[in-house]
């Protein structure tokens, strides 16, 4: 693997592992719609998982247009973030996962968020999966690289 590619993948991997929450942006009829979601990533970083109830607006919006973005960052809410924080924008298409057919995806999610067992298991909840097309990584305030998946 290309050396730079490895460095970027490792960076993305470490932030995906460390951070609990992501901002999900979906396409709403008038304005983009954003939410915080508890997410998990597969080891190859090709899939990002989160859970939502089917009655939410984000679920409805994703049903009508599955193109979405997830923003994950490691900011500490201090001025040093301008130097040290990394923000990662994952873009791709999101679909609901059939938990019985793909139990390992549920395991990955619960391994990271064991306290969400009840929420995850509820019949009204859906396990959602983003097939990541690309990661856009912003570091050092203004440096941007893209990682194709």
């Amino acid at each position: 693997m290309h050396e730079h590619e490895k460095e970027i993948e490792d960076l993305v991997g470490s932030i995906m592992a460390a951070e609990l929450l992501a901002v999900l942006a979906t396409k709403a009829p008038e304005y983009p719609y954003t939410n915080l979601v508890a997410f998990a990533a597969t080891e190859d970083l090709k899939k990002l998982l989160f859970v939502t109830t089917r009655s939410t607006r984000k679920y409805l919006y994703l049903i009508s247009d599955n193109r979405a973005s997830l923003l994950i960052d490691n900011r500490s809410n201090s001025f040093i973030d301008f130097r040290d924080a990394v923000a990662i924008n994952a873009t791709g298409r999101i679909r609901e996962v059939d938990r019985e057919s793909y139990p390992h995806l549920g395991d990955i999610y619960l391994h990271k968020h064991p306290y969400l067992q009840e929420f995850f298991s509820s019949p009204s909840s859906a396990l959602m999966c983003m097939d990541v097309g690309k990661y856009i990584i912003v570091r050092d305030f203004q440096n941007v690289v893209e990682l194709d998946m």
Partner: peptide, 13 residues
């Protein structure tokens, strides 16, 4: 540049 890389710099300071 190595065009095969999956990493592309988009903006740099």
């Amino acid at each position: 540049r190595d065009v095969r890389s999956r990493v592309h710099i988009r903006q740099i300071q």
